[in-house]
Design a protein around this nucleic acid. Structure first.
Length: 1251
RNA sequence: GGGUAGUUAGCUCAGCUGGUAGAGCAUUCGCUUGACGUGCGAAAGGCCACAGGUUCGAAUCCUGUACUACCCACCA
């Protein structure tokens, strides 16, 4: 029985939720022991929804909750229909948003991103997200979301990360991902590139500057400037003060004022006297030969204001005309001819590369295609005039400055006029400050520069007009609202074209359906648009791009303002320059090994391979048993202990067929395979009977897919292989290999190391040591002699020290290319002395300074022990880890790591470094991986020279991370790949349910990337099998009572949990659904929730009534068949009503008309079942009248009563089932109290849907 | 500039296979001992934006207009 009183949602929900969770009902794998449970239906179809992952950090708001209500509704409905349902939850790392949030979090602790370093930051941020995601997960459970939480995934989970990076690699290979220089949105605050979609617009009132590029030679070009008004040349009749047509008006108007009297004419000044003293008017120099002076006769108007308006109008329409306001400006200022242009961003004008006009604009026709020298704030410069359709002749002056580096539109224009408008000139740096091209404005922020330039343009007479009332829209960062700076930068992009046309087709052909219909068009329109999708962000929080550069890479701005990229010391000028400098793959190419596979014969295998392997790290000679007569098995045994994946392999002779077979068999991808004298492969089949098997097995067919770069080195005078053989045999079979001819005799048997083929050296050096560092300790000082510690105490060399240095210089080799010295005197002096012989450049580097010993400075150990006994006891004469003042050892290590990194990229190959004992120790430790204790006994003596080798050409990983949409765009694929078998079972999912506002952000990108991945996984998948979901249902957004979008900043949000507390989760869920339709925003306010709470209460009370009135029936009710009963007309009506409703509800749900279904259920349950039917049958149900006398006692009455009892139970159960997807908790609670058959499901979740 | 949706009761919205309009809230009146006042019964309130068309019949389908909201692009 149900308890008395109104429905109490809180306690019921708690109880029911625990029941569901404990029984694992949410898992698609759930199986019940009860026979009637729908989980036991044979051959269940699957039904999956991959849920949109909310930000792991965030609290869930109404928007999330409404989504869950819809998703869960579908899940529960389909579960009851007997489907195997998976609702797959996840949490998003939300890239830039979280990074900003977490940075603020760190600030609170007095920490910063930089102080933590990348790894630590990532780790902490990860923990932060995981911790906070518990919150969201709890909220999801509380709303009753029946998702399989055991499958929940975080977007940065290692397995997901692997898959995301793999997508990048695949797309790179397919050329769908490429690196290029583009104009991008740069957020100077976030210090990151952003995609268009990560930006917003804000209306802004920005002054609009009309300024003039004045010709340096005023009269030449200016003369040709013609002014045509409305298509005709004005001809003014001076005599009659009218135009040639006889009108006394100009063939155009000044703003709204028609009644201007034209009183001044002619170039001569005969009329001037008439104007003196009272003229406030406009003088237009329409042509070289005359001007017009116009006087306003209206006295009541604000003449200054009106003239401003007119003036602006004239500037805009009669560009090139020279206009003067008499009392404002002196005449001369405007008599210089030039081009007037308008802009809101004068500071970018240093980046102008051309001036553009509308091709149809007659005013400028004869200037197009010519170059002019004009005056600028920084002197003069030459500039081209081009014509382009992007220019609108009616806007501004009809002439635009083209600044390709700072405006996306101008970049596009420039691309169409590469010769005139390129290369770009970037004048603003990544911090939003003016750079070297801005002359005296360098270093100013964009805002400051604008202000300074305004003043300068005014005084230089360049400013023609300033329109203070201009409104435009500026792009701002979606996350931090900082204005975006369009800049040119090298980034990674996705080529969306081919993906878009595919995504468009899949919807057009109906493999994915989008609801509501109207949004399909929005989708199509987006799929037709063009976009360079920039997928790299300069952040730490996210998937670090699996890209490696050969050496440090950087972007910089050249003297002329061109943006360039440098990798190592190579400058990238075109895409081909990246060849060999970029490695894409998420293994670290630095740890890539070089393997030598020896053959049976020769000096190469026996001597050279082992010698090199010993000398170079990461180089290994594979040991092969029975190398005199090796078999395939011998090779396989030798190789099996090594991970050859993505390695470099150099094989000789018999090693060649062996390795080819081995990698083919194991499908091992190889970065580079070098085959030296692989003659046996091609020639010696008949001769080498012993190797027949190896050669017969030879699988050249797979090489092309497995080996990225294949090199074959052959010898032209090999007795076995001739050039002809090569061309006939090998090249035909391996046309993609690179062939290297070794001219000399058969090198590979020659005992001379130095004729080892040059090419091989290159290969090995990639992984080998290129940088030879020699480190020299300075000479003796007085303090050294006395045993006094001196770190930063700047003591000179003493006599002995100088002598030592002189001695040392004689012994030094001549191969150094630079001297790098600590700035302290003792080192610097030593460097200078030894350099007397070497004659090199000496560079000082602060990082090489000796450690600051704090209290120990200037003291001997004994003195120190006396003065600071405590401190001394914690340290040792040779090793001082615990100094109270001074520099910490870790800090010394840190700066030296920095120094070594700098050195690697400095370009020096053989530097001589002059520094201090402490520093040398640290360097040594770093390079030899020693602990401080291990290194302390090995102090270098004065002027002792030590040599180290370093790998200079290291691969350096790209610092950037991937755009969040790049990963969330693959979400269904990614999540279903994690658990074995899920992909095959649940992909494609049935529905994608989300708000329509992220259709263009997310749904489109999922349609771009998922089909691509699915097809890649298995090319045989059909269109139907590659789409990520069959239907997209876009729900409307939740608005507040006044129809305004809820937001934190407006404070108009409703807290869903407050509503749940107050009215119950079911009531809130019902409010999200009842009466709403796809794609339509709807308002949510407390009254709605409360009325739905009333509905829940109605269900509760009606159920109590039903249960109370069937109490006396016991087992009889559930064992009676409908056909055994005699129904009255009212019963039959009820029966018809409920049966029809079930059919109707099913239809509505199948058509995604959730809102209508909820309406109809509400109506039918309340206003028919409860209000009509239950009222009608009360007389049949009661066993006593008001006075307590027994009634309904005849057999017929008893029968009628039983029929009614049967029917109210039947109806109630049916209603509960139909309502369960909408109102899960309450319906479960009541269902539990209903009399049921033994084999009935233990939960309404798996009860059978009534149709 | 391109696109999408909307315009129905005082308010918020349903109603989209065409058959003289519905719900919630609000309003008015009545009802309280037996599931429920978080209730029951009743009432009032709409030429379904406008104009054409198709049809026996249009809130519903078509065309156009007006207004509103939103999205995309552009704004030198």
């Amino acid at each position: 029985m149900l308890p008395k009183g109104p429905y109490q949602p809180q306690s019921t929900e708690e109880e029911i939720l625990a029941f569901w969770l404990e029984n694992n009902f949410y898992s698609p794998e759930y199986k019940s022991e009860k026979k009637l449970s729908t989980s036991n239906q044979p051959d269940r179809e699957t039904f999956s929804i991959v849920l949109p992952p909310p930000n792991a950090n965030g609290n869930l708001h109404l928007g999330h909750m409404s989504g869950y209500a819809y998703q869960d509704l579908m899940g529960r409905y389909n579960r009851m229909k007997g489907k195997k349902v998976l609702l797959l939850p996840g949490k998003d790392h939300a890239g830039i948003l979280t990074e900003v949030v977490f940075e603020k979090e760190l600030e609170k602790e007095g920490l910063s991103k930089k102080a933590l370093g990348r790894e630590e930051f990532y780790k902490r941020c990860y923990d932060f997200c995981i911790k906070n995601s518990e919150n969201a997960r709890r909220q999801e459970k509380n709303i009753g979301l029946s998702a399989d939480f055991d499958r929940e995934l975080f977007t940065l989970e290692p397995k997901i990360v692997d898959e995301v990076l793999k997508a990048f690699e695949l797309m790179y290979e397919d050329k769908l991902v490429y690196r290029d220089k583009r104009i991008i949105n740069w957020c100077p605050r976030c210090q990151s590139a952003l995609a268009d979609i990560d930006t917003e617009f804000k209306d802004s009132q920005s002054p609009f500057y009309y300024f003039k590029y004045a010709f340096t030679e005023p009269e030449t070009d200016a003369i040709r400037l013609k002014n045509e008004f409305n298509g005709k040349v004005i001809e003014w009749d001076f005599e009659r003060n009218s135009t040639k047509e006889g009108s006394d008006r100009l063939p155009f108007s000044f703003g709204n004022y028609q009644n201007f009297e034209i009183i001044g004419i002619g170039y001569g000044d005969e009329q001037k006297g008439k104007l003196s003293g009272k003229v406030i008017g406009i003088q237009m120099r329409l042509d070289k030969n005359f001007r017009l002076v116009v006087l306003n006769q209206e006295t009541e108007i604000d003449i200054k204001h009106e003239l401003d308006k007119i003036f602006l109008f004239e500037i805009q329409h009669y560009a090139g005309a020279h206009i003067i306001l008499f009392d404002e400006y002196s005449e001369d200022r405007f008599y210089t001819n030039g081009f007037i242009l308008g802009t809101v961003r004068p500071e970018t004008k240093f980046g102008d590369t051309a001036l553009a006009v509308d091709p149809d604009d007659k005013r400028y026709k004869e200037f197009v295609g010519k170059e002019f020298e004009v005056r600028t704030l920084l002197g003069t410069s030459k500039i081209n005039v081009i014509s382009d359709n992007a220019v609108d002749e009616s806007f501004g002056t009809g002439m635009v400055k083209v600044t390709p580096a700072h405006s996306p539109e101008d970049w596009d224009i420039a691309k169409r006029h590469p010769d005139e408008a390129f290369p770009e000139k970037q004048v603003i740096d990544f911090n939003g400050k003016m750079n070297h091209l801005a002359g005296k404005y360098q270093g100013l922020s964009v805002k400051e520069a604008r202000k300074a330039m305004l003043e300068d343009m005014k005084s230089a007479g360049m400013l023609v007009y300033l329109d203070e009332n201009y409104t435009n829209r500026i792009r701002i960062c979606e996350r931090c609202k900082y204005p975006i700076e369009p800049l040119i930068s090298y980034q990674w992009f996705v080529d969306t074209e081919p993906l878009k046309s595919e995504a468009k087709r899949l919807v057009e052909e109906g493999f994915t359906d989008i609801m509501p219909e109207g949004k399909k068009k929005t989708y199509m329109q987006w799929m037709e648009s063009k976009e360079d999708w920039c997928i790299t962000r300069q952040l730490w929080w996210g998937y670090r791009v699996p890209v490696w550069y050969k050496g440090e890479h950087s972007q910089y701005i050249t003297e002329t303002g061109e943006v360039k990229e440098k990798i190592g010391d190579k400058i990238i000028n075109n895409p081909e320059d990246y060849n060999g400098l970029i490695y894409v793959g998420h293994d670290n190419p630095n740890s890539r090994k070089t393997y030598f596979i020896p053959g049976k014969h020769g000096y190469m295998s026996r001597k050279i391979f082992p010698e090199i392997a010993e000398k170079y790290p990461n180089t290994i000679t594979v040991q092969v048993e029975n190398i005199d007569e090796p078999s395939q098995e011998d090779y396989a045994n030798g190789l099996k202990d090594y991970d050859l994946k993505n390695s470099v392999i150099i094989a000789h002779s018999m090693g060649c067929p062996a390795i080819i077979n081995y990698i083919s068999e194991n499908n091992t991808p190889i970065e580079k395979l070098v085959l030296i004298a692989p003659k046996l492969i091609f020639k010696e089949k008949d001769r080498a009977k012993r190797y027949t098997k190896m050669l017969e097995d030879l699988r050249l067919d797979k090489l092309e897919t497995l080996v990225k770069e294949l090199v074959i080195i052959y010898s032209d005078n090999d007795e076995h292989v001739t050039l002809e053989d090569i061309s006939e045999s090998i090249k035909k079979q391996l046309p993609y290999a690179k062939y290297v001819l070794q001219k000399d005799a058969d090198h590979f048997a020659t005992p001379e190391l130095d004729i080892f083929p040059e090419y091989l050296w290159e290969v090995i050096k990639d992984n080998g040591n290129q940088l030879n560092i020699s480190v020299l300790r300075h000479g003796e000082t007085e303090y050294n002699k006395l045993g006094k510690f001196h770190g930063i105490t700047d003591i000179e060399l003493n006599e002995t020290g100088r002598e030592q240095a002189h001695e040392a210089k004689e012994k030094l080799g001549a191969h150094y290319d630079v001297i790098i010295s600590s700035p302290l005197k003792r080192a610097r002096q030593t460097a200078e002395i030894v350099n007397e012989k070497l004659g090199l450049k000496i560079i000082e580097n602060d990082l090489l300074k000796e450690r600051d010993f704090g209290n120990l400075e200037g003291l001997t150990w004994e003195e120190f022990s006396e003065q600071y006994p405590n401190e001394a006891s914690k340290n040792h004469i040779d090793f001082q880890p615990e100094l109270e003042k001074g520099e910490r050892i870790e800090d010394v290590e840190k700066r030296l790591r920095e120094f070594i990194n700098w050195l690697k990229t400095s370009g020096y190959k053989n530097p001589l470094i002059v520094t201090h004992a402490g520093v040398i120790r640290v360097i040594e430790r770093k390079l030899n991986n020693l602990t401080p204790e291990q290194s302390r006994e090995n102090d270098p003596k004065n002027l002792e020279l030590r040599n180290y080798k370093l790998s200079a050409a290291e691969w350096v990983q790209d610092e950037d991370v991937l755009d969040t949409w790049f990963s969330s765009g693959q979400w269904p694929y990614l999540t279903l790949m994690v658990k074995e078998g899920d992909f095959n079972e649940f992909y494609p999912s049935q529905v994608m349910e989300t708000g329509w506002d992220i259709l263009l952000f997310w749904v489109t990108r999922m349609m771009l990337l998922n089909p691509y991945r699915a097809k890649k996984l298995n090319p045989k998948r059909t269109d139907e099998q590659i789409v990520p979901f069959k239907s997209v249902y876009l729900h409307g957004l939740v608005l507040d009572k006044n129809g305004i979008k809820m937001s934190k900043s407006k404070g108009n949000g409703i807290d869903p949990f407050e509503m749940m507390q107050k009215y119950g989760t079911d009531a809130l869920r019902y409010s999200f659904i009842k009466g709403n339709s796809a794609g339509q925003n709807y308002r949510l306010y407390e009254e709605k929730v409360s009325s739905n709470r009333n509905f829940c209460n109605k269900i509760w009370n009606a159920s109590k009534f039903v249960l109370f009135n069937i109490e006396d029936c016991g087992e009889k009710l559930i064992n009676t068949n409908q056909t055994e009963l005699n129904f009255t007309q009212e019963d039959k009506d009820m029966l018809e009503q409920i049966d029809k409703l079930a059919v109707e509800t099913t239809r509505r749900l199948d058509e995604f008309k959730f809102g209508i279904a909820a309406d109809e259920l509400y109506e039918s349950f309340w206003h028919y079942f409860a209000d009509v039917y239950l009222e009608k049958i009360k007389t049949r149900l009661y066993t006593k009248d008001r006075d307590g006398n027994a009634i309904n006692t005849s057999e017929e009455e008893m029968k009628s009563r039983f029929s009614a009892q049967w029917l109210i139970l039947y109806s109630l159960e049916t209603y509960l089932k139909l309502l369960h997807p909408f109102i899960p908790f309450l319906t479960e609670k009541i269902w539990q109290s209903l009399p049921k058959r033994e084999e009935e499901s233990e939960s309404i979740m798996y009860s059978e849907w009534p149709v």
